[in-house]
Design a protein around this nucleic acid. Sequence first.
DNA 1: AATTAGCACTCTCTAGTACCGAGCGCTAAT
DNA 2: ATTAGCGCTCGGTACTAGAGAGTGCTAATT
Lengths: 348, 348
Amino acid sequence: MQDLKERQKQVLQMIVTTYVDTINPVGSRTISKFYQKCYQGELSPATIRNEMHNLEERDYIEQPHTSAGRVPTDKGYRYYVDCLMPEPKVPPHVAALVAREYRDKIHHIETLVERTSKILSTLSEQAGLVIFPSFEQLALKRIELTPIGRQHLLVVCVTNSGFIQSSMIDMKEVIPESELSRLNRFLNQELEGVLLADIHTHLADRLEQAQDSLRALYKAAHAIVLESFPKAAERRIALEGSRHVLEQPEFQNFEKSRRLFKMLESKESLMNLIHGTSEHPGAQVQIGLEHQCQDMRDCSFVTAQYRVNERIVGTLGVVGPRRMHYDRIVSLVDFVSRRLGEALEKWL
Amino acid sequence: MQDLKERQKQVLQMIVTTYVDTINPVGSRTISKFYQKCYQGELSPATIRNEMHNLEERDYIEQPHTSAGRVPTDKGYRYYVDCLMPEPKVPPHVAALVAREYRDKIHHIETLVERTSKILSTLSEQAGLVIFPSFEQLALKRIELTPIGRQHLLVVCVTNSGFIQSSMIDMKEVIPESELSRLNRFLNQELEGVLLADIHTHLADRLEQAQDSLRALYKAAHAIVLESFPKAAERRIALEGSRHVLEQPEFQNFEKSRRLFKMLESKESLMNLIHGTSEHPGAQVQIGLEHQCQDMRDCSFVTAQYRVNERIVGTLGVVGPRRMHYDRIVSLVDFVSRRLGEALEKWL
DNA sequence: AATTAGCACTCTCTAGTACCGAGCGCTAAT
DNA sequence: ATTAGCGCTCGGTACTAGAGAGTGCTAATT
């Protein structure tokens, strides 16, 4: 694809920005006036019409119907986001608002995540969503076995960064106190520094190579670990402010809003759409059909990974109509993802 | 309010049921035919019109406009729910569906609650909601202090019914192992059988009466309890299937759906609406403006408390348009509330 | 006294029509 | 390469007419 001429870029940019602002298909007259104001040059509507024709031939814009103005296509938005959009910058008052939300101590990780989702939604005026962090990529610091009554064992593990994961397991047979504390010491020796994701295989490997004298110990340890770390921890999503999307004029249409809500309510589909996105730092944008999901063809996603100790632990972002203020939203999502990471690091 | 005549009841009942089924204001002709089918009697449209006139004068039904059929008012629905509705009965296939959802072991309480909410939503074809259980009204069985590293203390408490609540607290100063286990034993002696809600005041009272020798111990215990049981545990709500309400014809109207979603997204308002409801067993119904909330004037709530060991621990229910199948929904909500209670009891 | 047939009236909903205006494409002139 | 001008297309709005559903009222009937 050969690149666009300078003036075509200008026209495309104006079409995108005015369309995003006004929802009205943009006509040549409007652009002509706008051009005068922005670039001091003089261009007649007819000239603009010619440029528009070129842009339309190359699929950057389209007409909803004859005798209407032009509207950006997915490709047009994409070009805008990649090449035309002003450098994303978070305005100070937004930064201040976000900072204030994270200021006071938050006791539950749920609260933190849900609050983040709400921040995204309020400041973007779209739907905000946060996939709950997974600590699979963090290293184990210590593990603690506590008997609860006679029947149950509470397994608590703490990661390097101070996160706690606890679960209760049934014990088939009663393990004496002394045995338990030996097992506990053993687990800590074996597993300190191992990634939570690798604990299973680590123990399984060691069990195979183990001498007979240690086999029993390994076996007990493995059993405990197996039960207390469910293999595929189902990940939760916090979604806030879907009503904002509903309020967009393009979703007045009943059929469209129905489809949208079907999607937003299915956590699995949402997960698929935004979880696989690239690992590069900074925000990614998926525009319209780029994500291949017919039901969401009128929506765009702006997402970013968030990190703890430079390890990716989750994804967050914003869902809105294709017609969105990409520059504002991209900077917001990027900014919030960093703040959430920091908040998690400072958490305990 | 004097009661209705038998035939008026019949007419009102037919108006409610056919309106709920069809969304169309019900005319005298329709009722006349319906009457023939149900009661074998013969009544001309004109007679029905007279009865309708009476019912309208007494505010049980109203006309959207002259020359339209009749529609039940809040008062009309209320009379239907209180006096006319068939005895709520859960059809066997619904019971089976619900039972299946609770059959396999569920590891997290979040999963259990969210699944319940989804059940309510799917089977009612409305929005389902469950307020997370609060264990404040359950008695403490044991409490366990575990040091994590040198900085933190994990406080785990188990209720009579086997529920776990754990929280991590910062320690200002390092407490030696022996001191800690003494404290632990002490806490268990003091607090076994006390309601979670009363733990604070219980310890505070004892502290005041304590002899000097025990003062230090009480003080430490109180400090720990204060930090690990946040005073007002903010309660979460699981809400599923709001899209169903959106799909109802009466919410096609943009302004109405906007108002509805504003409400549904504000957990606090929802909480206020359904939390205060009566403690009687079985489902309660709030119809239209009965709940005094203008933003929800077109909605009804069907809610029920759910219990663990006969103690109320939470509320669940269904939100939908005023025009809903009250008999079906009431039986469903009542049924599910009992099943959730049982599931929680059998939980560990 | 209760019921019913008949009729005039009201109001919504739909379809059809006409018209306005925005915006385009094309051609010919600059 | 740019632009002025013209004819054309098409969505949106306003207006009208007619159909249909349903009522309320009156007078007749049981």
